Simulated assay, not measured.
Amino acid sequence: MPSHAGSADLLLAAPPVRADGIALFLDMDGVLAPMAPTPDAVGPVARRTAALKAVEARLGGRVAIVSGRTILEIDRISDHALTSASGVHGLERRLKDGSIRRGEPDPGVARALAAFKAFAAERPGMIVEDKSVSAGLHYRQAPDQAAAARDLAHLLQAETGLSLQPGHMVLELKTPGADKGTAVTEFMQDDAFKGAIPVMLGDDLTDEYGFEAAAALGGYGVLVGPQRKTAARYRLDDVDAVLTWLEAVAEA
């Protein structure tokens, strides 16, 4: 996991409203869309779609969604507002020309998926998500199963060598070798983003990789949600604040 460098005691200000020279990398859940009881409960919203299209036009295309969701899910929720996208924590990435680069699933993913399904079958409320290159176990609707779910995930990680990625009431075992930080770094090497100042917006621990990558490339992270220890330099309160900020950047 990333170091989460920074102080929880230092109150972070809102990010500057600027457009010239920046590139935006935006997480989905908790940033562009509110958290929901189930992954499928999140859908397109007209304001979000309009804000994404407007800010992409203002930045000359230098905007990408970087999410733990698959690109297919990113497109469904964003209503196909953007071309550039990275899904499954950097394991798949779609470039500006529409081509998709996707890693091969580790053989351990199938083992983890089967174990998660067996676990969920005996526990109402558990949701298993198959992302091909990773397997997710959601316990938002069964919070009393959190400890048992973590124990299972750690056991499977030790058995398979997969990377364990905790999130908001979800545990994901994924093919090693990529994260949101590598996604940001790779996008910044593409012609569409090269030379810009990277700005990563995220809300949970998976986004710390993106914050650190942005900072290493001369940019910064923006934490969305409550103040905590983070590598981000700025903060916004919630999804509504993010959309308001994006709309302001589009008009800057």
Rank of each mutant, 00 (worst) to 15 (best):
S132R: 10
A196K: 06
L113W: 04
G68H: 05
D151V: 13
R140D: 13
A142P: 10
D204Q: 10
A81K: 03
G136T: 02
P198C: 01
A120K: 01
F116G: 10
A148G: 05
A85L: 09
I71D: 00
L162M: 07
D204P: 12
I127T: 14
G125I: 13
L155V: 08
Q189V: 04
V63L: 04
R123Q: 04
L59G: 09
L82I: 11
L171G: 04
H138T: 11
G87T: 06
D190E: 15
L137F: 01
L201R: 05
A149I: 05
L82Q: 10
E73L: 07
I65L: 02
S86E: 08
L201F: 14
M188W: 08
L156Q: 03
E122N: 06
A153D: 09
L91R: 15
K180M: 10
D179N: 15
A135E: 02
P143G: 08
M188Y: 04
K174H: 01
K96W: 10
A158C: 05
P105V: 07
K117W: 00
L91F: 01
V133H: 03
D97Q: 01
K194A: 14
E186V: 12
A120R: 02
F193S: 09
A178L: 07
I127L: 15
A64G: 09
D151W: 00
A114T: 14
A153C: 13
P107Y: 12
V88M: 08
E104I: 11
G98V: 13
L171Y: 08
D191S: 13
E172A: 08
G195H: 14
L113Y: 03
D97E: 00
M188P: 07
M126L: 15
P105M: 03
L173T: 14
P124V: 02
R140M: 13
G202H: 08
I74A: 02
V66R: 09
Q157C: 14
D179R: 11
E104F: 10
T160A: 09
R102I: 06
P107H: 12
D151K: 14
P107Q: 06
G125A: 12
D191P: 03
A148K: 08
G60N: 12
P176A: 12
D191Q: 03
A192I: 14
G181M: 11
K194M: 02
S134G: 10
V184K: 05
R102D: 00
Q165G: 00
G61Q: 08
A85P: 04
R93C: 07
L113P: 07
I197W: 03
K117T: 14
G161D: 07
V128N: 05
T83Q: 09
R123A: 03
I65C: 02
D190V: 02
S84I: 02
D190T: 14
R94C: 08
D79N: 15
S132G: 01
D204A: 11
L113S: 06
S163K: 07
E122S: 11
E73D: 15
T175M: 05
M126S: 07
R69V: 01
P166C: 06
A192G: 09
M126I: 15
K194L: 10
I127G: 01
H154K: 14
